[in-house]
Simulated assay, not measured.
Amino acid sequence: SRLLGLKSHDCHTLMQQLLPVAIRSVLEKLARYAITRLCFFFNAICAKTVDVSKLDKLEEDVVVTLCLLEKYFPPSFFDIMVHLVVHLVREVRLCGPVYFRWMYPFERYMKVLKGYVENRTRPEGCIAERYIAEEAVEFCTQHLSDVSTVGVPSSQKMGVSKPLSGCTNTEEVLPYIEQHMIHIKTAYPKFKKRTKWLQDKHNSTFIQWLRFK
């Protein structure tokens, strides 16, 4: 049977976890050995912790692995994407663990945005309207008790500070924003020059402060 509708993360998981097991009774030993080496290589560089002392060995091993693959795959298989595997270890050495930079979270969020589209002739407008509507509902529910929010579950928002663009775009609220910033600087004089800290504090306390105004 064929595997259809797989996302890039699905292929990533299949290659790292399932492919070495799936080919055990299908391919001959030497071909299986070459493919398994490649799977183990991606397992190593995609780990949450990478041992820097082993990077040189990984870089040497992946070159040997690609040479082994050349024995069993036709030349048309070796395009630029296969060649780029050689440079992945250098990228880890310069930029750190891979999971800090991969695009899987953004691909998942694109699925959410795709669900906003109801008129395929105007996809951008549908996404913009649904996003603004969801943000407005989120803002309103913060003033109501015992109401479940829409969008990302609250358990995933812990520790995340985001701008209050749903309410700060109105002229009526701007004076209150200025008053709240003055209030924060007065209450925390040691942090009045730390712009990022002030903005984070404003984002996390403005709604509660505004309720008493």
Rank of each mutant, 00 (worst) to 15 (best):
L3T: 06
L6A: 12
K7W: 01
S8A: 14
C11R: 14
Q17V: 12
Q17Y: 11
A22Y: 14
L30E: 11
A31D: 04
Y33W: 06
Y33T: 09
Y33K: 14
A34Y: 01
I35C: 10
C39T: 13
F40D: 08
F41Y: 12
C46R: 11
T49K: 11
V50R: 00
D51T: 14
V52W: 05
V52S: 13
K57I: 04
V62A: 00
V64L: 14
V64W: 07
L66D: 03
K71Q: 14
P74N: 04
P75T: 06
H87W: 07
L88E: 05
E91T: 03
R93L: 04
L94V: 06
L94I: 12
F100V: 08
F100L: 15
F106K: 04
Y109E: 10
K111H: 13
V112I: 15
G115V: 11
G115W: 05
E118M: 10
N119I: 02
R120G: 01
R120A: 02
E124W: 04
C126G: 09
I127C: 06
A128L: 15
I132S: 09
A133G: 12
C140Q: 14
C140R: 11
C140M: 15
T141E: 05
T141P: 00
G151E: 11
V152I: 13
L164Y: 02
L164E: 04
G166K: 00
C167L: 14
T170C: 11
L174A: 13
Y176W: 06
I177L: 08
Q179F: 06
K190N: 05
W197M: 01
K201Y: 02
S204F: 01
Q208N: 11
L210I: 11
L210Q: 05
R211W: 04
